[in-house]
Design a protein around this nucleic acid. Sequence first.
DNA 1: AACAATACGGAGCAGCGTTCCGCTTCGCAA
DNA 2: TTGCGAAGCGGAACGCTGCTCCGTATTGTT
Lengths: 196, 196
Amino acid sequence: MTDSGQSTASAAGPKRKDARRNQQTLLDAAAAVFVTSGVEAPVRDIAAKAGVGMGTIYRHFPTRADLVIAVYRHQVDACAEAGPTLLATSPSPHAAFEQWVGLFVDFLVTKHGLAAALQTDNAGFETLHAYFLDRLLPVCAQLLDAAAASGEIRPGLDAYQLMRGIGNLCIGADSDPRYDARRLVALLVGGLRRPS
Amino acid sequence: MTDSGQSTASAAGPKRKDARRNQQTLLDAAAAVFVTSGVEAPVRDIAAKAGVGMGTIYRHFPTRADLVIAVYRHQVDACAEAGPTLLATSPSPHAAFEQWVGLFVDFLVTKHGLAAALQTDNAGFETLHAYFLDRLLPVCAQLLDAAAASGEIRPGLDAYQLMRGIGNLCIGADSDPRYDARRLVALLVGGLRRPS
DNA sequence: AACAATACGGAGCAGCGTTCCGCTTCGCAA
DNA sequence: TTGCGAAGCGGAACGCTGCTCCGTATTGTT
């Protein structure tokens, strides 16, 4: 269930050349449409933008969630890999933790509708939710544990809840200038700080 | 635009008796369906449960949001009225504020899918969003200001962002036992506390 | 050049919110 | 009681989704 390269866009790509080309075209089109219309843009729009039929899209990406994952995979991976790096290069675990949270929030906030799609109740996007969790939860947990171990924050909140909370706070952060998700997330993680 | 009794279920109800009866039947059916299937339940289900046609539902409640508002109006009003009361009876403004937040969170968390529906990006529910804001934002602002004036919390976060943050944190709180919205909200408002 | 294997396109299905209009029911007036 | 306009009703129908299915076209191998 945690495999990669089978149900989601396979790593090497299909065998035939036209198929590989279409897959890339689709990824580019999807990325473009996601920027303008959000992650929940109609599949037909993406197919039209790519100049392919509906069948093609679903053959390459069995589910809309798979397409979203494929489009953002690199950035999610980058975010995951930034965790250990920050932990190694930051003056304190807490600083690393806060920087990583900032990275995560920036990512979510700049992807129109992604945070909302991540919520489980959104039908058809469970795979997306699961992917983010698989990829980022261990990283978040590591940072959180390190910060707790260094005594800079109160322990007792698990990484899962923290990530869900942060994700939730990012919902609708675009499309509402009065709402500043970064600030609220800062407040939330500020609430974790140990009252020294 | 802030009137009541016209576009949403009118206070006195329609003139004919059958219409008034149907309106009540619809409210009861909707309330029941919301409990079992959530706020985003298909309109057809509600009509079926009430034993009326689609036309009837849309004549009484021009929009699904109007129906949701009508169903929860009493509870929202109660929450709004609790604000001043708490402020008058609590030992400190900050205590009143925290109690009110607790009330608000309890309300949201126990209504399956309501918090999610409140987000603006959810098409067709803008009216719902607006109603909650109209009704609760002044109350929240009053409590927040009082708590800030008493020096118990840091000023600088407006009530709008706070309410949106709380609402967001409540999304998906049901249907996920691992997620405790109350706790995260407590953390968030805890982050507001003045470091005395 | 022939032929599997593979991929493609888009019509079609089911489920949603919402609209529309012919028919029914209500309640008043005669 | 009866007549009748107005108010209300039901559900077929529309447009929009995500997703499936299969006849047709493309590919690359023999």
